[in-house]
Design a binder for these strands. Structure first.
Lengths: 212, 212
DNA sequence: GATAATTGCAACACTGATGTATCGGATAAT
DNA sequence: ATTATCCGATACATCAGTGTTGCAATTATC
């Protein structure tokens, strides 16, 4: 019985957090992981998980909603409707990257969402589309670009940046990279750069650089 | 006993194909689908699948190898080492898109590959990296762009293009879109366009188009 | 310190999926 | 036409994972 509105003791809520964090860690590496493995990773008994979450599905649902809530927060924190588009989009990208790397499993597409998660997702997608439309009006994005394709590419770049290997320092393959602010900024820059400028040379007259 | 080298009767080989095709269809929509569901979709008895494939894992392995073989074929068919880079890369993109949309499940990342599939994958990745490096030398790709990031974006664009909703005609959501040559070409153009030119305006002096 | 909640542990029932074995009828190959 | 092979059907054994219950020990809260 996970969400039955009863006052939980402090340690109980701590357990819930620990469980969700462990589940995120384990499931992100093996989506088919068992409750036993999750429990072990969380340092609790398997029955404790079932005490707090009605079922495996419920656990995942709750994690998904929590993750999407954080995403929505991250987007709103960038003040997408008041700040200048470029700044807002960069800020939103950075914020989302931070959240996304902490919810690698919960935020991966495993079929269409349902319930509140779907609602939040639709909301976020809407704001994303709005930003793209504004970007087109501003001239930052080619007006003849298909907005849907732009959005899909943007989201793909986000996932790629959030879950790929680190770019700067080719360090040991840590499972939770513990991204620093500098890392996040570099990734966000990379994503926005790729999206806005693309890989091609900015000036067509420089596309044939002959060796001097 | 899947790969034990015995001469199979014609109908047996037909069964194997049917099973793999059905498995691809079913698993691409539900990766946790059971052998029973696969069998039903293939129009055969569950025991027949076990007759041809030692286990569920073996089935998936064989499918994965088959898919990667086709990918390698598709890449080689573009003559990446002899044709001019731009043409070869476009051709390879189109070919791979066609293959990829037919092996949606087998070609999705479910952790690191092993065995022959891993070998083929490494080979293909190598050719991809080579193409990117040549693209940089040619001036089609900015020389200061991180080749690794370029590759990851390219692969992400491929998946996005192959598995997303169709762009041109907003038709009914067919499960196997049965891509026409025109569709493939449009998608390939889109991918290469996005990769090479990016979304930004080609000429920086046009980035502030004031309304006339 | 009294009380109520939380946890670990052990045991259990239940379900669903996998894989095996066997058989008779159907089908391709010669 | 004969033969070897393949298939569907049924039954079975096995196993892993899920979810539940009860109880004793621990711990937060008042």
């Amino acid at each position: 019985m996970g969400t039955t509105g009863r006052k939980l003791r402090a340690d109980a809520e701590r357990s819930i957090r620990t469980i969700m964090e462990a589940a995120e860690r384990v499931l992100s590496e093996n989506p088919g992981a068992t409750m036993e493995q999750i429990a072990e990773a969380a340092g609790v008994a398997r029955t404790t998980i079932h005490r707090r979450f009605a079922s495996r599905e419920a656990l995942i649902d709750i994690m998904t909603v929590a993750a999407w809530r954080e995403i929505a927060e991250a987007v709103d924190a960038a003040r997408p409707s008041t700040a200048p588009p470029q700044v807002a989009m960069y800020q939103a990208t950075a914020n989302v990257l931070r959240v996304k790397s902490g919810w690698r499993f919960a935020l991966t597409n495993r079929g269409p969402l349902s319930g509140e998660a779907a609602r939040i997702e639709a909301d976020v997608i809407g704001k994303c589309d709005l930003a793209i439309r504004r970007g087109q009006q501003e001239g930052a994005i080619r007006p003849d670009a298909d907005p849907l394709w732009v959005r899909r590419v943007y989201l793909a770049l986000l996932t790629e940046a959030a879950h790929g290997p680190h770019p700067g320092h080719a360090g040991p393959p840590a499972e939770t990279p513990a991204e620093t602010d500098a890392d996040i900024d570099e990734l966000a820059t990379r994503v926005m750069d790729t999206l806005i400028r693309g890989f091609g040379p900015a000036r067509p007259e420089a596309d044939r650089p002959r060796e001097d």
